[in-house]
Computed example of a mutant assay.
Amino acid sequence: MKTTGNTILVSGGGSGIGLALAQRWHDAGNRVIITGRNAAKLDAAIAGRANMAAVTLDVTDADAIAAFAKDIVARFPALNILVNNAGIMSAEDASAKRDLAQAEATVVTNILGPIRLTDALVDHLAAQQDAAIINVTSGLAFVPLPKAPTYSATKAALHSYSVALRIQLEGKVEVIELAPPAVRTDLTPGQSTREGYMPLDEFADEVMSLFAVEPTPAEILVQNVLPLRNAEANGNVPAVLGMLKSL
């Protein structure tokens, strides 16, 4: 993936990891489009930034995704990079019967959203030079957080989807997985100041340095996520799972 001169679409780009990376890509000389459900956040994110645009999109709405893709390709025909970043996370108690509305929303947002957005744009991307799809998963794709089983499962699914998609699109579109560790964002209540979580700016800076590596790694993995990513290979899953269980 080239680091400059792209037209990049970032879902969930109004806050957190999506916003931090979108602004860094913009600073590096790329045209960037961000999406999200909160128009005010999107407007604030692009304020004072030429060649950065914002379009509202609810990735849980299949019809909205189809209409959005048609419009965005018409408005930005040079679009060559899709970043599937939008996601939600919540704690769950699955030990007894419960209301599954939040779990179902997590599945639709975190896995169906990226699949639908990828499907809507893949033909366009495949026709572009230097095209790439970046799927943002999580260290929890490799060892689940017990209190967030559905979130962890959706990220594991997106990891698997990325591996398969990479093979299907070989030679046409580069498929890159970005798996963050625990980062200080507003993904969950209190997370933005939680001790032991990686500061957002520090994470984004390390990510950008990894994207600058040639050739671009298939998986973008900051140092903090390696204990999770490598847990199975190292035989450390029980130990890491025990640590996550205490969180």
Rank of each mutant, 00 (worst) to 15 (best):
D99V: 12
A40E: 15
A66V: 10
R229M: 06
V213G: 08
M52R: 12
A74K: 06
N135M: 13
Y197Q: 03
V225G: 07
N85H: 11
Q129S: 13
I72N: 01
G18V: 04
I8W: 00
L247N: 09
A96L: 07
P215S: 04
N230G: 04
A50Y: 13
L112K: 07
L117A: 07
F68E: 00
P215W: 02
L57F: 10
A182L: 12
V136D: 00
E92F: 09
A20M: 10
G235V: 12
P189F: 08
P181K: 03
I81C: 05
T185G: 08
G5C: 09
M89Q: 15
A105S: 14
N51I: 04
E170V: 01
A86C: 07
L200V: 12
P215Y: 04
A141C: 13
A120Q: 04
G12H: 11
Q129K: 15
T35N: 03
L9C: 12
R98M: 15
K41A: 06
R49N: 07
D58A: 11
S246E: 12
I34M: 06
T106L: 12
K97I: 14
R184F: 09
V207H: 00
E195K: 11
N230R: 11
N224C: 06
R24C: 15
L187K: 02
S95D: 12
V136E: 08
H159F: 11
S192I: 10
M89G: 02
A94P: 02
A50S: 15
A91V: 10
P215C: 03
T188K: 04
D119T: 09
E104G: 07
A50D: 15
A141R: 00
Y151T: 05
Q223G: 06
N236D: 14
V173N: 01
L169Y: 06
V73E: 01
I65D: 00
L158A: 05
R166Q: 06
S152V: 05
S152C: 08
M52N: 14
A62D: 09
M1E: 00
A231D: 04
G29H: 08
A91D: 14
E206S: 11
A20K: 00
D201G: 10
M208R: 15
I134T: 03
P181G: 08
A62P: 01
A74G: 10
R31H: 14
D130M: 03
Q128E: 09
R24I: 09
L121R: 00
L9Q: 03
P217C: 02
A91G: 14
R24A: 09
N230P: 01
A233E: 08
A101T: 15
G12W: 09
L42A: 00
T7R: 02
A179W: 00
P215T: 06
D71Y: 04
L82M: 06
S95F: 03
Q23D: 07
T185D: 14
P114V: 06
A69I: 07
V163S: 09
N110S: 11
A47W: 02
P146D: 15
